[in-house]
Design a protein around this nucleic acid. Structure first.
Length: 287
DNA sequence: GAAACGTGGCA
DNA sequence: TTGCCAAGTTT
């Protein structure tokens, strides 16, 4: 029963993928950047952007020294570009308030823009080896199945942190490996659509398997809105235009990116409100 | 707690 | 083709 964690840790050490943020000598700043990029974005899309980013800005001070628009431009099409803005702001705060060193204290990390419960603990654990429960979508799914016997986790809750804490080994290095191992298990074995239960190290202890794989009964996730034709798509189109241009983009040019004027105006207003675009002489630019 | 917030790949 | 999913955070 309590070899649950030991099983995950042993499996992790034997099966972990070779990813950039697991290389020897990877810096806390690199971990922070990777965690920002990995928020809601698949590993395969993150890796090339991460390598470019760390080559160009190897420290927080390097990023803090350029305008935020440069971060938005380098973000390219990773999605959710406010993350680039938040990462830039975080770099400024780290440079000004933390002497250029990524903090390892969870509360200090939580105080930075764009960092929530997941990212703060991920940095504290993966960059510094501290002992905290890390909870992401993978871990929520593994716990739901292996521990709770449910096909899917319920809605996210602060109680998820408590559940993970209860499973966490006391030993610091083991607790870090357990966090990483649970995420890895959810990412490559206990996946959302077609779990590979025949390859799972927890199969013998899995409550969901023991119960006969009952289907999920709880509240349904809200269905994701269609992207084609959405305000999000229009924002993306306008921002792509601003990223590509190095002089202000005019209203006339923006008319070409989306025909519906009302929707275009709404999207532009949103970008301006978010600080992803600024009014300039004759048009709009990145900040 | 719900809704908003990008983009791309896969079944 | 459509729907689901992807290392979440903010308001």
């Amino acid at each position: 029963m309590h070899d649950f964690a030991a099983t995950v840790v042993a499996w992790y050490h034997a099966n972990r993928r070779d990813l950039p943020w697991r290389r020897d000598g990877f810096t806390p700043w690199g971990t922070l950047v990777s965690e920002f990029m990995l928020q809601q974005t698949p590993v395969s899309r993150v890796i090339p952007r991460l390598e470019e980013w760390l080559t160009r800005w190897p420290t927080p001070a390097d990023l803090a020294a350029v305008p935020p628009g440069e971060a938005v431009r380098a973000w390219k099409s990773l999605g959710y570009p406010r993350r680039a803005l938040w990462l830039h702001s975080a770099a400024v705060a780290i440079t000004e308030r933390h002497g250029g060193v990524v903090p390892e204290d969870v509360d200090a990390l939580l105080a930075l823009p764009g960092i929530g419960d997941y990212t703060a603990r991920a940095v504290a654990v993966f960059a510094y080896g501290n002992r905290h429960p890390v909870v992401d979508t993978n871990i929520r799914r593994v716990i739901a199945r292996a521990v709770d016997g449910q096909a899917e986790p319920g809605p996210p809750s602060r109680r998820d942190l408590t559940a993970m804490e209860a499973l966490l080994p006391e030993d610091r290095p083991a607790s870090a490996a357990f966090n990483a191992g649970m995420m890895e298990l959810g990412a490559i074995v206990c996946v959302a659509r077609t779990p590979r239960c025949d390859e799972c190290p927890l199969a013998a202890q899995c409550a969901w398997r023991r119960a006969g794989y009952p289907p999920y009964e709880g509240p349904r996730k809200a269905t994701q809105k269609r992207y084609e034709g959405s305000d999000r798509q229009v924002r993306g189109r306008i921002l792509a235009e601003l990223r590509a241009a190095h002089v202000p983009v005019t209203d006339a040019e923006l008319e070409g990116v989306w025909p519906d004027a009302a929707q275009r105006d709404r999207a532009l207003a949103g970008l301006l409100a978010d600080g992803l675009a600024v009014a300039a002489e004759g048009g709009y630019t990145l900040p």
